[in-house]
Design a protein around this nucleic acid. Structure first.
Lengths: 211, 211
DNA sequence: ATGCGAGTTTGCATTGAGTGCATGTTAGCT
DNA sequence: AGCTAACATGCACTCAATGCAAACTCGCAT
C-alpha cells in the first residue's frame, strides 16, 4: 500500500482518464496550431486528433482560446505564494518586486510546448491576445488583493491595485518591447531564450523600484 | 461659397451619408445593448434598426465588438499630442504624467452614450473586456514609441515601453479598483461621476511619480 | 447632361464556434 | 450485481463572420 501523508489525494481512475484526455487535447492542439495555424485549425479537428467527439471538447475547455491557457492561474498562484512567504522586514514594493522576480525565474508553464505556440499566436491572432490580456488582468486583481491583505496598514485597496498595475505593467511593457526587437518566432522556439527574455524584461522594468 | 482655410476638407455627400449611417449604427447598438444586453442583441438586429442590410454592417465595423469602440484611437492621439507639446525642461516621467493627466481631463469620448454602455459591458462581457484590453495595449505601444522619439537620449525602446507600461498600468489598476468599490452601474450612468473617477484614479496612481 | 468608374449596398451561400437537449455509457460505491 | 452521478456523444440550432457576384449611386471628366 502506498502511503501518502498530506500529499495530493490518489486520483481516481476517472480523474486520471480525464487528465489524459485533457493532455491529449492540449498536445494535439499545440501541434496543429504550430503546423497549420490557429484560425486554420478547427475544434472538430482537435477533438478528432484526441479521439473524442467535437461536442465533448467543450466539456474540457469552454472555448477554443481556452486550450491555449491550460493552467492559466499558475502565475497568479506563484506570485501570491511569494507574497505570503515574505520577510517581515520588507515593505510592499520590495515584496512585490521579489514576487515578480520569483515568477520570472520559476515559471513552470514556460517550458511546455504550448507556451511557445502561445507566445507566437499572441503576437499574430487578436483573439488570443485578447484572451491572454484578460487572464493577465484577473491575475493582477488577485495579486492586488493578496498584497493589500498582506499590508493592510500601508495600503488601501486602490493603492494596492495601482502599485500592482504599475509593476506588472512595467514588466509587460518591457517584455513586449524586447520581443519586438528580434524575430519573435526565433525567441518563441527556444524555451531557454524565452525564459531569459522574461528575466531580462523583469530585471529592466523593476530596476527602478529596487531598494 | 463657404470659405475654409486649412480646416477639414468639405466632406462629400458620400462621406456625409456614410458618417450618418455609421452614427445611426452606433446609436442603435448603444440603445439595444443597454436595453437587452450585449449577447442578447444580434448584429442583424442592429443593422435592421439602422435600416441597412446585415451584410453591410461589416463594411462599417469589422466585428460586433468593434462598434463599442467607434473611435478607439482618440486617447492615444491625445496622449501623443500632449507629449509633442512638452516643455523643454521636463523629463520623460513628468511629460508622461502630464500627458496622462491631460487625457483624464479632456477625454472627449467619455460623454458619448456608448461610453457608459461600454463601461458596464467591460465588467460583465469577456469578449468586450478582451477587445478593450487589446486597444489599450496597442495605444500603449504607440505612446511608448512617441515617448522614446521625444527622448532619444534618455530612453531606449525597452525603457520607454517599461515606463509607459508602469504609468498606464498604475492608472488602470487604480481605476479598476475604484470602479469595484461602489456600484459600477451607478457610476457608468453618470458621465460626470465617471469622468471624476478617471481623474481620481489618475491622480492617485501618478502621485508617486510627480516631481 | 451623359456616361464611365470607383466606392457601396445587398442577398445568398457557407464555414465554424458554441449551446441545449436527450440519450447512451462508464466509474464508483454499497 | 445494481444503483447513481458523472461523463460522452450526436443532433439540431443560433449567430458571427467571410466570399462572391450582382445591383446601385455618387463624383467627375468629357
Amino acid at each position: 500500500m502506498v502511503i501518502r501523508e498530506h500529499g495530493a489525494p490518489v486520483p481516481s481512475l476517472r480523474e486520471r482518464k480525464r487528465e489524459r484526455t485533457r493532455q491529449a487535447l492540449v498536445d494535439a492542439a499545440a501541434e496543429m496550431f504550430e503546423r497549420k495555424g490557429y484560425d486554420e485549425t478547427t475544434v472538430a479537428e482537435i477533438a478528432a486528433a484526441a479521439e473524442i467527439g467535437t461536442r465533448t471538447f467543450f466539456g474540457y475547455f469552454a472555448s477554443k482560446e481556452d486550450i491555449l491557457f491550460p493552467d492559466s492561474d499558475a502565475r497568479a498562484r506563484t506570485t501570491i505564494e511569494a507574497i505570503a512567504n515574505r520577510d517581515p522586514a520588507e515593505g510592499p514594493v520590495d515584496v512585490l518586486v521579489r514576487a515578480l522576480e520569483t515568477v520570472a525565474e520559476t515559471d513552470a508553464d514556460m517550458v511546455s510546448p504550448m507556451a511557445a505556440v502561445r507566445m507566437r499566436l499572441f503576437r499574430t491572432v487578436p483573439a488570443v491576445r485578447g484572451k491572454a490580456l484578460q487572464i493577465q488582468m484577473s491575475a493582477q486583481q488577485e495579486i492586488a488583493r493578496a498584497l493589500q491583505a498582506a499590508f493592510p496598514d500601508e495600503l488601501d485597496r486602490v493603492g494596492a491595485a495601482a502599485l500592482t498595475g504599475a509593476l506588472t505593467g512595467a514588466v509587460n511593457g518591457a517584455l513586449d518591447a524586447l520581443m519586438d526587437d528580434e524575430d519573435a518566432a526565433t525567441v518563441a522556439l527556444d524555451a531557454d531564450l524565452l525564459r531569459e527574455r522574461v528575466r531580462q524584461a523583469t530585471e529592466l522594468a523593476l530596476r527602478t523600484w529596487r531598494s
